[in-house]
């Protein structure tokens, strides 16, 4: 099972890195005479209404569909782990200030804020990604903080304090490795959430300019072709689903094996 999950995500990663190079056709090359056609030997997943090869567009779009969520997950994980550890270990006013801010942030309707931000700033996709990372962070801060609270009371953490080790060393060398199962699992979940949310934004037509090869955008642009070439919209939707499921399941498994092995 685990091998399958890793294989799925590995293939997705290969597509994301080398997709444009692997694509059999130029993803932007149009064949208006052909139009939307069903799968054939020449076009394995058929073509869209402008006669562009669906498979090539999927491969070329893997980059933007996967890289941005990875970036969101990375930012969220680094931010939430650092701030959560800080709040949970320092306590006092640092904790109070941070947690009230988190409460406020969680009270905001996230997706709506995102749509407004992207709408106001326009096509700057990077901004959408940054906003999304900031939106995901507060929830994870809470999780990391509560785990830190539990760990700091354990004898090994007290022993580290008794040895007079600096706080940063206790936080990052002693506490952090014991939070690793949760950190890994929650970063994979952030990836999934970002993948789905960004695809959703593309589907709503917000974010990437029309015509860019991107999975979310393809679902939206080709949904009118369900009778001519259903694969043009089903394939990208299916890819999003498969990658999201694989990442979620892998997160679960990673959590279990990390909390069992070595650490306890």
């Amino acid at each position: 099972m685990r091998a399958i999950l890793v294989a799925v995500l590995g293939l997705a990663a290969v597509a994301a890195v080398a997709g444009s190079w692997l694509a059999p056709y130029d993803p932007a090359a149009q064949d208006l005479a052909l139009g939307a056609a069903e799968p054939s030997a020449a076009h394995w997943l058929g073509t869209d209404d402008l006669g562009r090869d669906v498979l090539s567009r999927l491969l070329a779009g893997a980059g933007s569909a996967l890289m941005w969520p990875v970036l969101v997950a990375a930012c969220t994980t680094v931010l939430s782990t650092t701030l959560g550890l800080l709040a949970g270990y320092r306590l006092g006013w640092v904790d109070a200030l941070m947690m009230r801010t988190v409460d406020l942030a969680i009270a905001m309707p996230g997706m709506l804020v995102l749509i407004v931000v992207v709408g106001v700033i326009g096509g700057g996709y990077g901004w959408a990604v940054l906003a999304m990372a900031l939106l995901f962070t507060p929830g994870d801060i809470r999780v990391i903080r509560s785990l830190t609270l539990a760990q700091r009371e354990l004898a090994y953490a007290e022993a580290a304090r008794t040895l007079g080790l600096p706080a940063s060393r206790i936080m990052f060398r002693h506490l952090l490795p014991n939070l690793a199962p949760t950190v890994v699992a929650s970063s994979l979940l952030s990836f999934v959430a970002a993948l789905v949310a960004l695809a959703g934004l593309s589907f709503l037509g917000i974010g990437l300019p029309a015509g860019t090869p991107d999975w979310g955008l393809m679902v939206q642009e080709n949904r009118g072709l369900l009778d001519l070439n259903p694969w043009a919209s089903i394939a990208p939707a299916a890819l999003i689903t498969v990658v999201a499921c694989a990442a979620t399941l892998l997160g679960d498994r990673a959590f279990e094996s990390l909390s069992k092995g070595g650490l306890r």
Binding site: L154, A155, Y156, E158, A159, A160, T162, L163, G164, R173, H174, P177, N178, A180, G262, L263, R264
Partner: peptide, 21 residues
């Protein structure tokens, strides 16, 4: 400094060492 003058052996051997180190 205090940590060079006094040290402690804690009760519970299952948590007194950092499992990750």
């Amino acid at each position: 400094p205090r940590h060079q003058l006094v040290q402690c052996v804690f009760q519970d051997p299952s948590t007194s060492l950092n499992p990750a180190l």
